[in-house]
Design a protein around this nucleic acid. Sequence first.
DNA 1: GGAAAAAATTACCCTATGGTAAGAAAGCTA
DNA 2: TAGCTTTCTTACCATAGGGTAATTTTTTCC
Lengths: 191, 191
Amino acid sequence: MKELFDKIESSILLSLAAKEFLYSISKEKAIPKWEILIRQGQTVTKTFFVTAGCLRSYCIDKNGKEHTLQFAIKNWWISDYIAIHTDELATLTVECLTDSRIIEFNAKELDEIHTRFPEFESYQRHNLERHVVSLHQRILNQLQLTALERYDLFLRQYPDIEQYTRNYHIASYLGITQESLSRIRVEKAKK
Amino acid sequence: MKELFDKIESSILLSLAAKEFLYSISKEKAIPKWEILIRQGQTVTKTFFVTAGCLRSYCIDKNGKEHTLQFAIKNWWISDYIAIHTDELATLTVECLTDSRIIEFNAKELDEIHTRFPEFESYQRHNLERHVVSLHQRILNQLQLTALERYDLFLRQYPDIEQYTRNYHIASYLGITQESLSRIRVEKAKK
DNA sequence: GGAAAAAATTACCCTATGGTAAGAAAGCTA
DNA sequence: TAGCTTTCTTACCATAGGGTAATTTTTTCC
């Protein structure tokens, strides 16, 4: 719980009213490892703010292969934004990679917070801007770097995430197979 | 000019004050084909709202290859968000693919609009949410579709953009070479 | 702590896409 | 309309990464 306000307050000043409202609707929850919070094909109503641990969102394609869209650790938001925005069934699965703690919000609650508290809306806008920037960078990396370069960058950029993940999670995030990642790791080890 | 308000008003209600302020600072500009609005390596101060025509943002990698990040037609925003956000030099070039019309905003102006007019901030948040959703979809497509499938999807999803682009623009957006796109087009034609 | 399950590695061969270079077509511009 | 420039196509070969399956290593959990 505290984490949410730490995070938000570090970027904007929340009014007392906003703070009380947030407290009144949000409950921090412990989620055990491997629990699934959103399941591909089902309806999505919630967005999650992570206060501890690590979650992952991924989709399973028509050949049964997993593709990781996002990892989320402390202070990050995660959900199936595609489904929420298009009002369709989940295209993603969101799972807990380790015992974690989250705060969940449904769409109506978030709408209400945004409407009632402009400072929260401002926080969200900044958040989304950062998100867009990181997605732009990810797309450019995918277009111009080799698999090895993307792996190195991932390790440098998100050193805290590796401890929670299996190699095949990272491979599917980087857009390669587990086997290719394994070959890359062998090459790296040789140097 | 009118377009900006058409677009914004269709999603939110702007107060009279906000509208007057927007009018007072924004000037629509005609930009000729091939003009470059942001140049990789230089400083970035502006964000563009397109009212007619088509712009493109791309980066040139260390091997001299172009990678298209975004196309923007009427009612879309375009800039080098990476540079603006990280406060560094442009990693992207933004060019005009055809004679176009734009309204430009500098960061300070946008900040001021956001601060003074919560309804504009709300519009921007929704805009950014849509942007995040489309980037998520693009990343998933890149991970799970073949080049041919991505090309078909592009043509279906953005039928209005093709008229403004060269094939190598589209190829570099899809993450393939111009030659590969050409081979794909030949295959498609056969069927 | 040990059996069972899951993940990672490795070897072998395969395929989609890349690179180069030459020629054809289309688009400008005088 | 001719000539120049840019874009597109095609052929040929190269390569990064994929697929399968067997083996080893690590993790899970009773």
